[in-house]
């Protein structure tokens, strides 16, 4: 029996988020949120481990209450239980404060063997939370893993594989461990519709809502005050002005193209 905890973020669908250059803010109104895509791969990994080795899958998310919708999807995929960490005092957290809060909540769950995160979120794309949670809990962590090779249930030793730029690494560690996975390492299963309906109707049975009072966290390490970093401004990313010379194909056009490539020192 393995206890798995999957961290899930309910993120605005960044593809729909537009930037208001006048106000210098992101326009989030009317933008639907989604489960951070690699987190689906994390859930899938947890479920496949559960299928092979047995165990329980918890999903945890530090998000506003609207994230309930996402947690129901996680339940529908097959997670046993979901915990929504929501409290105004959690707001404004950077990756360190988020990781601390998540780590304290995971500690509260009690026994955990494998903690799985998506390797990064589509909105902030830091990839920090996995390693930071691992360090805060004082357990092993490996990012960018590709697959689990073996788990020895008696000695509680896990063997896993990950890919780096110049090769493949195989690691071994005693449980518990934190791992993070990316999009494409597996195919997340479709959330079982009837289970989603069950989660909708009997939400309390599947999803617990925790606030600050439910976890043992130090106040100065959560939320904005627990965050060492500050965002001071946001600007629209400058776009490269393209030349946009478009021609109907002819052989001369290719010569012109080579000329342009020379002019721009590309060739």
């Amino acid at each position: 029996m393995l206890n798995m905890v999957v961290g899930v973020k309910w993120v605005p669908d960044t593809a729909d988020v537009k930037f208001d250059p006048a106000k210098g803010t992101l326009i989030r109104e009317g933008v639907e949120s989604i489960i951070n895509p690699p987190d689906l791969n994390a859930i899938e990994l947890a479920l496949s481990i559960k299928e092979k080795y047995g165990g329980k899958v918890y999903v945890i998310s530090m998000s506003p209450p609207a994230a309930l919708k996402g947690l129901k999807i996680a339940i529908a995929m097959g997670a046993d239980k979901a915990i929504l960490l929501t409290d105004r005092r959690f707001a404004g957290a950077d990756t360190l404060a988020t990781s601390y809060t998540l780590a304290m909540a995971i500690r509260k769950i009690g026994s955990y063997d494998i903690i799985i995160f998506g390797e990064e979120t589509i909105d902030s794309a830091t990839g920090h939370v996995g390693p930071e949670v691992g360090e805060i809990l004082g357990i092993s962590h490996v990012s960018y893993i590709k697959r689990i090779l073996n788990i020895d249930l008696t000695s509680k030793i896990i063997e896993l594989e990950r890919e780096v730029e110049n090769g493949v690494e195989v690691y071994k560690s005693k449980l518990p461990i934190v791992v993070s996975v990316g999009v494409g390492v597996n195919n997340p299963r479709y959330p079982i519709p009837i289970r989603r309906l069950h989660a909708e109707i009997e939400t309390d049975k599947y999803i617990e809502i925790w606030g600050l009072s439910n976890i043992d966290a130090e106040l100065d390490r959560i939320g904005l005050q627990g965050s060492p970093t500050r965002v001071i401004k946001i600007i629209a990313a400058p776009t490269v002005q393209r030349r946009m010379e478009v021609f109907q194909y002819s052989k001369e056009v290719l010569n012109l193209m080579v000329k342009r490539l020379r002019e721009c020192e590309v060739l």
Binding site: E32, I34, I35, Y190, P191, P193, I194
Partner: peptide, 20 residues
């Protein structure tokens, strides 16, 4: 297969659910 077991051989359904 789909409603009870979630077995569907395409991501189109998930896409509809998430992005309409």
């Amino acid at each position: 297969l789909v409603t009870n077991l979630g077995k569907v051989p395409t991501s189109a359904l998930f896409n509809i659910m998430v992005r309409g």
